[in-house]
Structures are given as structure tokens and as C-alpha cells.
């Protein structure tokens, strides 16, 4: 009390009613706990410009897909084509042999993804819920498989699959995926490991006391409690298998094709389909047609992403990779 009274009254007054300038300053520059308006504007400006750079190729792609030859050559036409021109899309659609290729891509991506998801769940559960000899070393080996480039294993696997007559069939994807050696399997095992470590031991003990077998406990408790890990693993597997072209071109030869593979050989396929193009009325392959094909090849993924983006974006929060 004494110290308060001893303070000069003017100073106390100033603290109670800050001048207008201080108020404005606080608004604009912020305080330690709250950012000011200027900082906020800078943050939004930065985020929006970075976001634009991220989206730039996609916007460019959409814009160019609808440009005809005269728009392409006309430098005053920037983002918005002068008229609605769909020839590029229909032509690319034809060359990609779109619907059959799309169905094949879905087949090639879904089969290994489902297997990879299920195996990663079982293996991750085993690592998380049991203590057995050599567990730590095995877990380190699981993680280390992430670092091994596919280039090392692809030649022996090719020879092996060749001897077994599995080349050119989905088995070349399904078998590694079903044995936990598919694309980035290690990540999925790790996600399930983290998920299942979080289940309380008492829950499992209770089930054991009720006489449930170990595998039944997994199906009755593990599967429902790991649901988000299942969804995340499936979605990421799907996207990674969908986009894989290196392994696909080696294992499948020409028998199974995917949209990315067709996109890879698009220019050659186009020239093959429209020989002598560029002359009589049919446009030769150009930037707009190539971008239309690229757009067509990513549209299914975009649809998957916009339906399930919450799962993708929250995957890392949910997977517990960054700790609890």
C-alpha cells in the first residue's frame, strides 16, 4: 500500500489511460502476446503469395488447357482464353485412352494399397503390443528399409518375379506390399506402431481375461481403435502407388498401364495417333495439349484429395510421428 501511494500520481494516471498514439501503436505493431495489424497483414501477404506460387502450375495448366492455337500465339492473352475451347481436352482424352487407363490405374493402385494397409496394421500392432526378443533391432531394421533406394532391390526382384512368371501382373506390386516391403511400407508400419502404443494396456488385459485370443483382440480392439491410421495409410499408399512410374514401367512392361505412364509417353502416342498432324487442320502436339493431358491425369487425384483432404492434412497430427 505504502509503495503505491508513494508513486507520483501523474505516472499512475498515464498507465491507466494510455494516449491515443499508444493505442494506435498497439493496434498496428502489437504487443508481446498479440500480433499487431501490420504484422498480420505481412503474414497474410506472405502466405497468399507463397500459396500462389504453390498453385501457379495448376492454374497455368487449367488456363492453357482451354487455349486454342491463336490464343497460345497471342501474347496479350494471359490467363483467360478468349473463348471456351475444348479440343485440347478431347484430344488428350482420346490419346490417353482415358476411361480404360483410369480404371487400370485404380486397379493398380488400390490392390497394393489395401494389402499394404492391412499388413502394416498387423505388423505395427505386433511391434507395439508385444515384447519379444530382438524387437528393438527389428524395429530399427523396419525404419532402415525406408532409406534403401528401390534401385538396389529392383533388379533382383525383377529377376525373381521373372522366374516366377509374375512380371506384367499386379502380383509384382501386390506381393511386396502384402509382405510389408511395398512403397514406403516402413512409414505405415511406424504410423500403426505409434497408434497402437497409445491404446491402454488395461483394455487389452481385460479382453485377455475374457478369454479372447490374441488375433481376436486385434480385430475387436485394434482395428476399431486404429481406424484413422487405416484411412491415412490407405490414402497415402493409394497416392504413392498411383504416382509411381519407375517400378510400374519395369514390372509391368506394357501389359498394365497407368495414367502417369501414359502421360510419360504422351507425345509419342499423340504423334502416332495423328500422323502428319500439324498440317491439314489437325493441330500438332503443343503446350496446350500436353497440359490438357497432364490436367486429365491429375483430375482423379484432385477429386480424391478434395473429398479426403482433412485426412491428408491432419495425417501427421494424428499419426503421432511428432510425439504426443
Amino acid at each position: 500500500m505504502k509503495t503505491l501511494e508513494s508513486q507520483p500520481p501523474t505516472k499512475r494516471k498515464q498507465k491507466k489511460q494510455p494516449s491515443k498514439w499508444v493505442k494506435v501503436k498497439k493496434r498496428l505493431l502489437g504487443t508481446n502476446s498479440d500480433r499487431g495489424l501490420i504484422m498480420k497483414v505481412i503474414f497474410y501477404a506472405l502466405l497468399i503469395s507463397v500459396g500462389f506460387v504453390f498453385l501457379y502450375p495448376v492454374i497455368y495448366m487449367i488456363s492453357y488447357s482451354f487455349k486454342d492455337l491463336s490464343d497460345l500465339l497471342n501474347s496479350s492473352v494471359n490467363w483467360i482464353p478468349t473463348h471456351f475451347y475444348t479440343e485440347n481436352i478431347t484430344r488428350a482424352y482420346e490419346v490417353l485412352d482415358y476411361i480404360p487407363t483410369l480404371l487400370e490405374t485404380i486397379f493398380v493402385a488400390v490392390v497394393p494399397s489395401v494389402l499394404q494397409m492391412m499388413v502394416a496394421a498387423v505388423v505395427g500392432y505386433g511391434f507395439a503390443r508385444y515384447d519379444f526378443k530382438g524387437k528393438r533391432i527389428l524395429l530399427v531394421l523396419v525404419i532402415s528399409t525406408f532409406v534403401i533406394p528401390p534401385q538396389i532391390t529392383v533388379i533382383p526382384r525383377y529377376i525373381l518375379f521373372n522366374n516366377l512368371g509374375l512380371l506384367g501382373s499386379i502380383a509384382a506390386y501386390a506381393i511386396p506390399a502384402g509382405l510389408g516391403q511395398g512403397i514406403n511400407s516402413a512409414i505405415f508400419i511406424l504410423i500403426f506402431y505409434q497408434t497402437y502404443r497409445a491404446i491402454p494396456v488395461s483394455l487389452i488385459e481385460a479382453a485377455r481375461l475374457d478369454g479372447a485370443g490374441e488375433f481376436k483382440i486385434f480385430t475387436k480392439i485394434g482395428i476399431p481403435m486404429g481406424l484413422s491410421a487405416f484411412i491415412i495409410s490407405f490414402l497415402f499408399s493409394l497416392v504413392w502407388y498411383w504416382n509411381e512410374t519407375y517400378l510400374a514401367s519395369i514390372y509391368f512392361g506394357g501389359t498394365l498401364s497407368t495414367l502417369p505412364l501414359e502421360l510419360q509417353r504422351f507425345v509419342a502416342a499423340y504423334n502416332n495417333m495423328f500422323p502428319g498432324s500439324g498440317g491439314d487442320g489437325i493441330a500438332g502436339v503443343n503446350e496446350a495439349i500436353e497440359l490438357a493431358a497432364t490436367l486429365l491425369s491429375i483430375i482423379p487425384l484432385l477429386i480424391i484429395y478434395f473429398i479426403s483432404q482433412k485426412w491428408f492434412v491432419e495425417s501427421i497430427d494424428r499419426s503421432g510421428i511428432t510425439g504426443e
Binding site: F127, T153, E214
Partner: peptide, 24 residues
């Protein structure tokens, strides 16, 4: 019961030996 963990990781173990270690 703890050794039942091996059963769960068995698919991975088989795959690791045949499709990773052996190829390497």
C-alpha cells in the same frame, strides 16, 4: 504370450528376408 508378437510381424519378416535382404 509375449512371443505371439512374432506371429504378428511374421509377414514383414518373410518379406524383409526374401524381398529386401536377399535382393540387396
Amino acid at each position: 504370450p509375449e512371443n505371439k508378437g512374432y506371429l504378428f510381424i511374421l509377414p514383414w519378416l518373410i518379406g524383409f528376408v526374401t524381398l529386401t535382404i536377399y535382393p540387396i
